[in-house]
Design a protein around this nucleic acid. Structure first.
Length: 269
DNA sequence: AGTGAGACCCGAACGC
DNA sequence: TGCGTTCGGGTCTCAC
């Protein structure tokens, strides 16, 4: 599901294509995807140009010239396509933003949404999120301090958006694998060395995954060969029963706090 | 505080 | 081909 690397990849690619572009039409096929009446949504978005595209955790923020923002959370299975009626995928679209020669299609928004908010409302929503793993504030000291205070297992803490923003089910497993740590380890029992390994693994995995376009394979636009490039680099996620690329042991598929979890019994401890 | 269960949601994938 | 069924999971809330 879309996590920090996928959303940051989207943010970068969409910034290249949409900054300064004007929304000339808005189509809402699913009213539940938005948070205000359709007429109001259209009135406040149609005619607006995209001033900036930001990201916080797993959410993308489109700044409009009227000071309002569109906050996108894809939740599970949501994705986007930027293109024409001719090259767009054969899927159902919940929302379409029309930019003239191209449109931005929002697909698979079941629990996901595109909310129109004021700056104040945006701040309130984002205030519940922990720090960004790709910010300069994300130091090994801060990382270790936070984890040492947690009594639970590693994986549930990593995917907790209030602890760090942007890590989800896939990358929490990949980070644990990279750090040679089992996801059910208790945070408080991790040594200083293990915490450092985990910190470095978090930066490495999220950084590489972002640069390689994330693991979700649907291209964002025609000729987009970047998005999804990390899929083949995922070492354990969704690879239950396959041999571990590091030691050959078959990858275990398990469940931790009702989340599907993958790890290697051979080289994660 | 951490964990687990239930609700939310519905298109796509699957099975016959 | 076509219809009915199953599945997926991030987030929130509540109970323990």
């Amino acid at each position: 599901m879309p996590e920090l690397p996928e959303m940051e990849n989207y943010r970068r690619l969409l910034s290249n294509k949409l900054l300064g572009r004007r929304i000339v039409g808005v189509t809402i096929h699913r009213e539940r995807s938005i948070n205000v009446p359709v007429e109001s949504f259209i009135e406040q978005t149609k005619g607006q140009t995209i001033q900036r595209i930001g990201r916080r955790g797993k959410q993308i923020i489109f700044d409009l010239e009227n000071g309002r923002v569109l906050l996108l959370h894809l939740m599970l299975g949501g994705w986007m396509y930027l293109g024409t009626q001719e090259d767009r995928p054969d899927r159902t679209f919940q929302v379409i933003l029309d930019f003239g020669n191209i449109s931005l299609y929002f697909i698979g928004l079941r629990l996901g949404y595109l909310h129109l908010l004021s700056q104040e409302q945006l701040e309130e929503v984002l205030s519940h999120l922990g720090p960004e793993p790709d910010s300069p504030l994300f130091t090994s000291g801060m990382f270790s301090d936070k984890l040492r205070k947690k009594r639970g297992m590693l994986k549930p803490v990593l995917v907790d958006q209030k602890v760090f923003a942007g890590i989800g089910n896939c990358y929490s497993d990949e980070i644990c694998f990279e750090a040679h740590l089992l996801p059910m380890r208790k945070c408080q029992e991790l040594s200083d060395d293990e915490l450092l390994e985990l910190y470095l693994a978090t930066r490495l995995v999220l950084g590489q995954a972002t640069e390689m376009g994330g693991y979700m394979e649907n291209p964002l636009f025609l000729g987009d060969h970047l998005t999804g490039g990390y899929d083949e680099r995922c070492k354990v996620y969704d690879r239950g029963g396959e041999p571990c690329p590091r030691c050959g042991t078959l990858i275990t598929k398990d469940e931790i706090t009702s989340r599907k979890t993958f790890y290697c019994r051979g080289c994660q401890h």
